[in-house]
C-alpha cells in the first residue's frame, strides 16, 4: 500500500514536472538569453560541439551541407546559426532530435527554416510548394507524439518531418554513415542516440550528461533501466584509443566533451546506486527507509541537485518506484 501511494505521488509529481518542462512558453518567459554565447568546439573529423544554454548541439559539416543534432532554445537560433556559419556556409539540411524536451527542440522551427533539404533545387516544382524550403527534422515518432500532447507545442515548422518507429534509422550524409538508434524508455520514450561512424563520435542526448544524475522523465516513458541500457550500448559502441583515452568521442546532452572512460564511470555509478536501492527494497524497506540509507551520498557532491525540477530526492524516488514495480 505504501508503495502504491508513493508510485501515485511520484507520477503526479513527474507529470507536473514534465508539464513545466514542455511548456516552453513558461520556460522562455522566465529565461533571459541575452548573455548566452554559443561556443564551438571541434571534436574530430566532421564533427563539432556547440555549447550554450540548453542541450549541447552536435554539428556535422561537409560538402553536402550541415546536419545538427538538437537545437537548444528558440531565442538562441540566430546565435546558433552564426556559430554554424563560423564552420560552414552550406545550408542546414538535417536536424535530428535526440528527444522532445524544450531545451533540445526549442530552436527546431527557426533553424529548420534557415535551412533547406535535398528536395529543393531543380526538383522543387515536382513537390508540394515549399517542400525543399527547410531542413528535414528527424526524430523517433514518440517525439512527435510528445509534441502533439503539449499544450503549447513548438511551431509546426519545427515538428519532425521524418519520423521512425523501428529500432534504428540510417543516414549517409557528407560521406559518412550516421546510425540513429532508438533507446527505449531511457530519459524519455523517444530517445535517439546518434553515431557518426567515420568521425567516430556519438551524440547521446540526455541519456548521458556530465552535470548531474540523469533526469528520468517517468511521465514520458523514461526509466533508469532504459538509461543504463543506453549507457551500456554506448560502451559497446565506443572504442578508446591508445592508453584508454579518446578514440570514440562522446558528446553528452549537457556538460563537457567526453570519451568512453567518462561514460564508464557514470554507468558504474548508476548501476551501484540501482543495486543499493534494489537491495533495500528486497529487505522490505519503504521509500523513506531507503532515503534514510542515503544511497547516493558518495556521489551527491558531484552529481546531486538540491533544487530545480529533478532533485536528488526525486531521483531516488523514481528509482525506488521503478524497482518496486519490477519486484
Amino acid at each position: 500500500m505504501i508503495i502504491n501511494l508513493n508510485i501515485i505521488r511520484s507520477i503526479i509529481s513527474a507529470t507536473a514536472l514534465c508539464f513545466c518542462l514542455f511548456n516552453s512558453g513558461v520556460t522562455l518567459a522566465q529565461q533571459n538569453f541575452d548573455d548566452v554565447e554559443i561556443k564551438v568546439l571541434h571534436v574530430q573529423g566532421n564533427i563539432y560541439m556547440l555549447v550554450g544554454e540548453g542541450g549541447n548541439i552536435t554539428l556535422q559539416a561537409g560538402e553536402q551541407g550541415v546536419l545538427i543534432v538538437d537545437t537548444m532554445f528558440a531565442p538562441l537560433s540566430d546565435k546558433i546559426f552564426a556559430a554554424i556559419r563560423s564552420v560552414s556556409d552550406k545550408p542546414i539540411t538535417y536536424i535530428i532530435n535526440t528527444h522532445g524536451h524544450g531545451d533540445h527542440i526549442g530552436g527546431n522551427a527557426n533553424l529548420a527554416q534557415m535551412g533547406s533539404n535535398i528536395a529543393g533545387g531543380n526538383t522543387i516544382d515536382l513537390f508540394a510548394a515549399g517542400a525543399g524550403n527547410q531542413a528535414k527534422v528527424v526524430a523517433h515518432e514518440n517525439v512527435m507524439a510528445s509534441i502533439l500532447a503539449q499544450e503549447n507545442p513548438i511551431p509546426i515548422e519545427g515538428w519532425p518531418t521524418d519520423t521512425y518507429y523501428t529500432s534504428k534509422k540510417d543516414l549517409f550524409f557528407n560521406g559518412e554513415a550516421i546510425m540513429i538508434t532508438h533507446q527505449p524508455n531511457a530519459h524519455t520514450d523517444g530517445d535517439s542516440l546518434i553515431f557518426f561512424r567515420r568521425s567516430d563520435v556519438i551524440s547521446t542526448g540526455d541519456i548521458f550528461r556530465t552535470t548531474a544524475y540523469p533526469f528520468i522523465d517517468v511521465a514520458n516513458g523514461g526509466s533508469l533501466q532504459g538509461v543504463l541500457d543506453g549507457l551500456n550500448y554506448i560502451l559497446d559502441l565506443a572504442v578508446p584509443a591508445d592508453r584508454q583515452e579518446n578514440g570514440t568521442m562522446i558528446i553528452p546532452g549537457h556538460g563537457r566533451l567526453t570519451d568512453e572512460a567518462d561514460v564508464l564511470d557514470y554507468r558504474d555509478m548508476l548501476t551501484i546506486i540501482r543495486d543499493r536501492i534494489a537491495y533495500r527494497i528486497d529487505q522490505g524497506d519503504s521509500l523513506s527507509q531507503v532515503k534514510a540509507t542515503e544511497p547516493t551520498f558518495d556521489y551527491d557532491d558531484r552529481f546531486g541537485l538540491n533544487s530545480g525540477t529533478f532533485t536528488t530526492e526525486k531521483f531516488i524516488e523514481v528509482i525506488y518506484n521503478e524497482l518496486s514495480i519490477r519486484n
Binding site: 561556443k39 568546439l41 560541439m49 555549447v51 592508453r243 584508454q244 583515452e245 579518446n246 568521442m249 556538460g255 563537457r256 566533451l257 567526453t258 570519451d259 572512460a261 567518462d262
Partner: peptide, 24 residues
C-alpha cells in the same frame, strides 16, 4: 607503467574551455 605521456606547457598558453574533454 601504462606509459602515460604528458605535456607541461611552458609557453604561457591559456587553458582549454570548461566544456573541453578531460584526460588522464
Amino acid at each position: 607503467w601504462q606509459a602515460p605521456e604528458r605535456t607541461i606547457w611552458m609557453d604561457g598558453r591559456g587553458r582549454p574551455p570548461e566544456y573541453a574533454a578531460h584526460t588522464w
